[in-house]
Design a protein around this nucleic acid. Structure first.
Lengths: 340, 340
DNA sequence: CTGAAAGCGCTTACAG
DNA sequence: CTGAAAGCGCTTACAG
C-alpha cells in the first residue's frame, strides 16, 4: 500500500509527532523515546516510508556512494574483484556507482569528474590510469582515491597491489631452477606499474643467476597481441623453452596458440607461467602455473584504506603490497624437489 | 584551483548574475543570453564549478541513476553484459549503481528496497529472482523494472531474453540429425525461466522426433554440480553419447571432467553443446558448440525498454525475445552437410 | 532573458 | 526527549 512517494512529514502527521522526530528515529544514534520510536515505526510501516537517501546525502555531505572505475572486464580477475568489493561495501552500508573506462587517461579523467558530480565519498580505480592532476583535483575536493592493482608513485594516491616485483623474481627462480635455458617474457602493458614491476623483478632475478632474456614483448594485456607474440617467439630459429606471461588472461591465449595452432606441447616443448591465479587457471584445460594475487586480501585492504581515509581525512596515503605464492601446476616444468 | 565545494551561488557572485542564471546555463534547454552564458562559463571554469548532481536529482525527481542487480558474476556472460550495459547507459547520461545479489528472493528484495532508497530512475535485474510483490512495490513507486536474461510471466515486469525455447529445439535437432541416440541434459537451474525454457524446447523437439531423454539433471548453474552430474551420467552402464548443458559456464566444467578426469574424448565419445556463446567458448581449449545469446542486442533492447518506460510511464511492459544462432564448433559431432 | 522566491526531503544545532 | 527553524544546492514557476 505504499504511496508513490512518502515523506517524513506525512509519517510525522500520522504518528502525531514532529518531522524532526521522524528523522531522529531513522538516524542511528539520535535520541528518541521508546514511545516515539514505536509510534513512528508503526506509521512508517503503514505508509511504506523509507528515508530518501539523496536528501540525506545532501544535508549530511555523505552520500555513502563509492565510485568504482574499472577497465578490462574481459580479464576475469576484475569481475572477481568487483564482486568482492561490492559485497563488502554493501555490508558496510556503502553502495557502488560503477564506471567502465576505456583505458586512456583522458577518458578516465572525464569519468572521474562525473563521479565527483555524484558527490561520491571515495573512489576506487581498478587497473586504470589516472592523471596526477586528476588526483590533485580529487584531493582538493576532499575525495580519497585508492588505486587497486596499480600504483602511481608520487601521485599521493593510496594503492593496493600484490608484491609484483617479488612475484616476477619468484617466477624467474622457478624457471631457472627447473633448468630452462632460453627464457622469454610476454609482459603486461608497459604503461602499467603492474606490468613494469613484474618484468623488472623477473629480469633482475634472471640476470642475477647469469641468465639473459631471449626476448621481451609487450603483450598489452590483450589476447590478440599475446598470441601474435607467441607465434613470433616460437617461430624463431632458437625458440624459448619457457615463457613468463604478464597475466593469466594473456597466458590462456598463449597456450591456445602454442598448443592448438602451432601443435606444440606444454610444458614439454615450452613451459608457460602466468600471473593472477584467476579461477580458470585451475581448470583442467589450462592447469596454469601462476603467481597468485590474493584478491580477497587485496579487496579488503582497498576497502580498509578507503574507508579509513573517508573517516579520517587527515590520514596520509598508503602503499600496500600483499605477497602471493607461486602456484605450481601442469603448464610449467618444476624444479626437482620443488616445494612452495 | 578548485575550491573544496563550489556552489552555484559563488559562481553567480563572481559572474555578476543571479544564482538562477547560473542554474539555467547548466540546464540544457533553459534560456540564457549569449552574454550570460559566457560570463557564467568563465566564472565556473575559474572556480572549478560543477553542478551537484544530488541536489539536481532531489528537485527534479530524476536521479539519472539506474540500479543494476547482478548475480553469477563468475559466469562470463554477465561481466560482458555488465560492460555493455554500463557503457551504453553512460553514453546516454545515466549511471549505474550496482548491487551484487546472493540468489535468494529475500535477499534480492532487500537489495531492491535499498536501490529505491537511492531514488533510482529504473532497475535492471540480471538473472536474478525478484518476487512479484517487490515488482508491485516498484510499480507503485513508479520505478520501471526490466528483467535481463530472465522472464517472470504475470509479474507485469518487462523482460529481455533470447528465444530460449527455440534455442533448446535447435540443439535437439542438431544432435538428432548428427545421429545421436542416447541424449542427456544437464539443465540450467529449474528455478529460472531461462533454464526451464531451454529444457522445455529441447525435450519437446526430442520427443517430436521420437527420442527420449536418457537423463535430466539440474546443474544449478554451478561448475561443481555440473561436474558431478557429468560423472554420474558417464559412469552409467549405458552412458549418453551427447549432453546438452544449460549454459557454457557449466559446459566448460563438464568438458574438463569428461576429458581430464574420466579420460574420454569430446566429441568422439560424447558430444557436448552449451548455451550463451561466451568469449571463452571460441577459445581453442574448449571450441564449444553452443547457442549464441546475442548479448549486444539483448543489452540494447534492455536499455531501450527501460528508458522508454522512464520517459513514458504509461508505456506497458513488454516481453522481448531475441533469436540467436547455433554455433557449430568442435565439441559436438555435426550432422552431415550441416549449415547454420 | 532575468531575478527573487518557493520548495525538493531531509539533518542538525538551538531552545525548551 | 522534542519541536520550530534554518539550510544543504539545486530547479522551476512567477513576475517583470
Amino acid at each position: 500500500m505504499a504511496q508513490t512517494k512518502v515523506t517524513s512529514a506525512e509519517v510525522a502527521a500520522r504518528a502525531g509527532v514532529s518531522q524532526s522526530a521522524v528523522s531522529r528515529v531513522f538516524t542511528p544514534g539520535a535520541s528518541a523515546s521508546a514511545k516515539t520510536v514505536e509510534k513512528v515505526k508503526a506509521a512508517a510501516k503503514e505508509l511504506g516510508y523509507r528515508p530518501n537517501v539523496l536528501a540525506r546525502a545532501m544535508v549530511s555531505g555523505k552520500s555513502r556512494i563509492i565510485g568504482l572505475v574499472v577497465a578490462y572486464l574481459d580479464n576475469h580477475f576484475f569481475p572477481v574483484a568487483l564482486e568482492l568489493l561490492s559485497n563488502e561495501l554493501q555490508k558496510k552500508g556503502y553502495h557502488v556507482l560503477i564506471f567502465t573506462a576505456p583505458n586512456s587517461v583522458d577518458a578516465v579523467d572525464n569519468l572521474v569528474q562525473e563521479l565527483m558530480d555524484y558527490q561520491v565519498d571515495g573512489i576506487i580505480a581498478a587497473s586504470v590510469s589516472m592523471s596526477s592532476t586528476l588526483a590533485d583535483r580529487a584531493k582538493l575536493a576532499g575525495i580519497p582515491v585508492v588505486l587497486f592493482n596499480r600504483g602511481l608513485d608520487g601521485s599521493g594516491m593510496s594503492s593496493v597491489t600484490s608484491t609484483n616485483t617479488e612475484g616476477g623474481r619468484k617466477v624467474a627462480e622457478f624457471l631457472v631452477d627447473a633448468g630452462h635455458q632460453r627464457i622469454a617474457h610476454i609482459s603486461g602493458w608497459s604503461g602499467s606499474s603492474t606490468g613494469r614491476d613484474r618484468a623488472f623483478g623477473f629480469k633482475e632475478s634472471l640476470a642475477k643467476s647469469g641468465h639473459a632474456l631471449v626476448a621481451e614483448i609487450d603483450g598489452m594485456y590483450s589476447r590478440e597481441v599475446a598470441s601474435e607474440a607467441a607465434r613470433d617467439l616460437m617461430s624463431r630459429p632458437d625458440p624459448p623453452d619457457a615463457i613468463f606471461v604478464g597475466n593469466d588472461h594473456m597466458a590462456f591465449a598463449v597456450m591456445d596458440t602454442i598448443r592448438f595452432e602451432l601443435g606444440l606441447r606444454v610444458p614439454e616443448d615450452v613451459s608457460i607461467v602466468g600471473y593472477d591465479d584467476v579461477p580458470m587457471a585451475s581448470w583442467a584445460a589450462y592447469d596454469l602455473t601462476t603467481v597468485r594475487q590474493p584478491v580477497n586480501q587485496m579487496t579488503e585492504a582497498t576497502i580498509d584504506t578507503l574507508l579509513g581515509q573517508i573517516n579520517d581525512p587527515t590520514r596520509t596515503s598508503t602503499k600496500i603490497e600483499i605477497p602471493g605464492p607461486l602456484i605450481a601446476r601442469g603448464s610449467a616444468r618444476r624444479p626437482e624437489g620443488w616445494t612452495p
